[in-house]
Amino acid sequence: MNARTLPRHELAGLRTEVVDSPNADLVGISGEVVDETTNTLLVAGDRVKQVPKAAATFRFTLDDTRVRVDGERLVARPARRTETTTPSKWR
């Protein structure tokens, strides 16, 4: 996994922070992604918070690299997102 391919991978277990959103209450939510649905990320910091993907821009931390991802790119079932964004010999 690297900065370019991050949206194609499983996000659970990654550190993230909401850096931009039309909803000011979401900005600053940070922690570890503990679960992912089609439209939301569950982020565990001091509490587990449900963040709509489409309404936020996220910054993920990969080792020492920070990757900024528009939540619209993540809207899909996790398994479907990883299948449809990469060539697959199984389709």
Rank of each mutant, 00 (worst) to 15 (best):
A44V: 00
A79T: 06
G71V: 06
T37W: 09
V67M: 04
T65S: 05
S30G: 11
D63A: 04
V27W: 01
A54S: 12
Q50S: 14
V18M: 08
G71P: 04
L41I: 10
T57K: 03
S30L: 12
L41M: 12
L41W: 12
A3G: 08
Q50M: 14
R59I: 07
V75H: 01
R59K: 08
A12Q: 15
L41P: 03
E72Y: 02
V19T: 12
N23Y: 01
A76V: 07
D70C: 03
S88R: 02
R80Y: 05
T16W: 08
G45M: 01
T84M: 03
M1K: 10
F58S: 05
A79I: 09
Q50Y: 05
I29E: 08
R81M: 06
R15H: 15
V34C: 13
A79R: 01
G28T: 06
N2Q: 09
T85H: 05
T84K: 03
A44D: 08
F60W: 00
M1G: 14
D25P: 05
R91K: 08
V18N: 04
T5L: 05
V51M: 10
E17H: 09
D20V: 01
V18L: 04
A56H: 04
R91E: 13
H9L: 13
E72K: 06
P87I: 10
T5S: 07
D35M: 07
N2F: 07
E32N: 12
R68A: 10
D64Q: 01
D25S: 05
V75A: 12
V43A: 09
T38D: 11
T61G: 03
E36P: 03
T37Y: 06
V18T: 07
T40E: 11
L62R: 00
A54I: 15
R8A: 14
R80C: 05
K49D: 11
E10T: 15
G13S: 14
T57F: 03
G71T: 08
A24I: 04
T16Y: 09
D70Y: 00
V27Y: 00
A12I: 15
H9D: 13
K49G: 07
R68K: 12
R8Q: 14
E36L: 13
V75F: 06
A12L: 12
D63Y: 03
P87G: 11
S30M: 10
K53M: 13
A76G: 06
R77P: 06
A24M: 00
T86I: 02
K49Y: 04
R68D: 13
R80Q: 09
R81W: 02
R81F: 02
E17L: 11
R4F: 09
V34H: 10
A56Q: 07
T84Q: 06
L74W: 03
R4Y: 10
R4W: 08
R4L: 09
M1E: 15
T38E: 14
A12G: 12
G71D: 09
F58W: 06
T84G: 05
E72W: 04
G45Y: 00
R15S: 15
E36M: 11
A12V: 15
